[in-house]
Amino acid sequence: MSRLFHFDQADLGYPSHRVLRDLSFGVDERDFIGIVGPNGAGKSTLVKTMLGLLPLCAGCMEWPGGRPTIGYVPQREQIDPIWPMRVRDMLQFTLTALEPPHWRRRGEDERVAEVMQTAEIDALADQTLDTLSGGEMQRLLLARALVVEPQVLLLDEPTAAMDLFATERFMNLIARLHRDQQVTIMLVTHDLQSLAGRATTVGILSHGTLHHGPTAEMLSAERLSEVYGHQVEVHRQNDQLFIAMQGLENGGQR
């Protein structure tokens, strides 16, 4: 696998406040990396920088093979359901927005039908945004990211506030995309359990920097205890990971 991108001694954040300092790490093509860390650790800053929405404060970020098409999947709360669109409309608009201005609207693209099937929302094609459940909306956002045929999928806490079934379904979908279509996945999440058995590597953001390594090594009790500042117990069973945190009886004071 060749290198997709890397940061070299990069400072990320804002001119008045650098959130991450001296960041040096890279991601390979067809990797599945999970990015975790406590609130305020810099996950959103990392996402914004990778998307090109925030300039680097120092250092460099390189894409050795050129910047690929990135499919961005935001949290569903960022989507306003008052827009009068059906599921298929949103995908069609995304596709045609990237084309040159045109007079006649084309018929529905095969690509739209294909990604609706991949994201398991083909049955919802004619539903409007305000009728979708949380899990359905998140799968629609995944489909929207896929419609532009990305080489990289960047997902920002997609399973936040999702129920257990919807989370499992969504994560299985991501794992299948990674396995079958060789899409590079970068998943920012608080849900550590969902990374076990799926992510090949994990990056933990903590104290202004990022620690990066194989999933099993990074999701160890010692490492997580250090990052979250509380005693963490980790139990493994097959590919499942069970995490328990201790020492929170007094409002989180150790």
Binding site: L51, L53, M85, Q92, T94, A97, L98, V148
Partner: peptide
Amino acid sequence: SKFVVSSFDPVMSQTLGL
């Protein structure tokens, strides 16, 4: 579609180069 997409989700639109 450019007006709709860039108004509906400016962040995603920017990432797509719109």
